[in-house]
Design a protein around this nucleic acid. Structure first.
Length: 271
DNA sequence: ATGCGGACCTGTTAGC
DNA sequence: TGCTAACAGGTCCGCA
């Protein structure tokens, strides 16, 4: 579910409610996530204040004086702020209750998400250390994509969705960026020119920035920290638009599977 | 090193 | 209406 814009929307939404606030109690109803929620988490954060919340790729990092809690939302996860007590539902796996009375609730029906703890530098955690550059930073450029793609036979779409190349680009925004750049998703990554990678790099940034500005994309169940949907769905040019008219040329949008993911494109606009 | 398929899990929808 | 199969925003791991 959540890609970078949805995670960033979550981060900015919860920050004002939890920054500087002390955790009063942690309730883990079901710790069986992608990885088990570590037993020491409760002990490590109870009574401690959240010093900062940052994001690396699709991971949220809650900084405490003694270490960091890493939260990934997987495919179906969400974090919501509750200002009054609300009965926990089936997939509400964890609550972080603050001394202020505010509750941060983690919900994740598919349990692909994770809640982890690291006592050291979070960037050095094994899951974060290998991540490629942030797409919205300066490191991601056409030149970078061009260099990293040389010698690769895989499709350009799988290439930009590889978190070791660039982190945070999931299926929706990979489709959208390739459309914006006019590049066919099946093209071999290693054969695309530098000029076209310049376009693609810029398109990735632009699509993600616009989506962040709209509060992310809600297809079915993404909600921000206040329980509201994101509005980028109305801006989607190709994703989930199979058979509908291309916004540029009116030809029907095509869909096919690529690397086990649905891939949407316009065969006239993307070469 | 690269690249692919399978795995994790639940809910919803499409198709027979 | 009911059963089954396919699919869903992610990504790690093991194998070729």
């Amino acid at each position: 579910m959540p890609e970078l814009p949805e995670v960033e929307t979550t981060r900015t939404g919860i920050a004002p409610h939890v920054l500087g606030e002390k955790i009063y109690k942690v309730i883990v109803r079901d710790g069986r996530l992608r990885w088990p929620v570590p037993k020491e988490l409760k002990r490590n954060i109870t009574g401690r204040a959240v010093r900062d919340i940052s994001r690396r790729g699709k991971y949220l990092i809650f900084h405490f004086d003694n270490g960091s809690m890493l939260v990934h939302l997987g495919m179906s996860g969400s974090l919501r702020i509750l200002t009054a007590k609300v009965k926990a539902e089936k997939h509400d796996h964890a609550d972080f209750i603050f001394e202020s009375g505010c509750i941060l609730r983690f919900r994740d029906p598919r349990r692909f998400g994770s809640i982890l703890w690291t006592g050291g530098d979070p960037e050095q955690h094994s899951l974060l250390a290998a991540l490629g550059p942030e797409p919205l930073g300066d490191e991601l450029s056409g030149d970078y994509l061009f260099r990293r793609s040389r010698g690769r036979a895989q499709s350009v779409k799988t290439f930009i969705m590889d978190s070791r190349i660039v982190t945070g680009v999931g299926n929706i925004y990979a489709n959208e960026a390739l459309f914006a750049a006019g590049i066919h998703p099946r093209n071999q990554a290693g054969k695309i020119s530098k000029a076209r990678y310049e376009k693609l790099g810029a398109a990735i940034k632009e699509v993600l920035e616009k989506a962040v500005a709209k509060g992310g994309t809600t297809l079915r169940d993404f909600v921000n920290s206040a329980g509201e949907p994101g509005y980028f769905r109305h801006e989607l040019q190709v994703y989930a638009r199979a058979g509908q008219a291309c916004v540029q040329c009116r030809a029907p949008i095509k869909v096919q599977r690529l690397g086990q993911r649905s891939t949407f494109y316009c065969s006239r606009c993307q070469k």
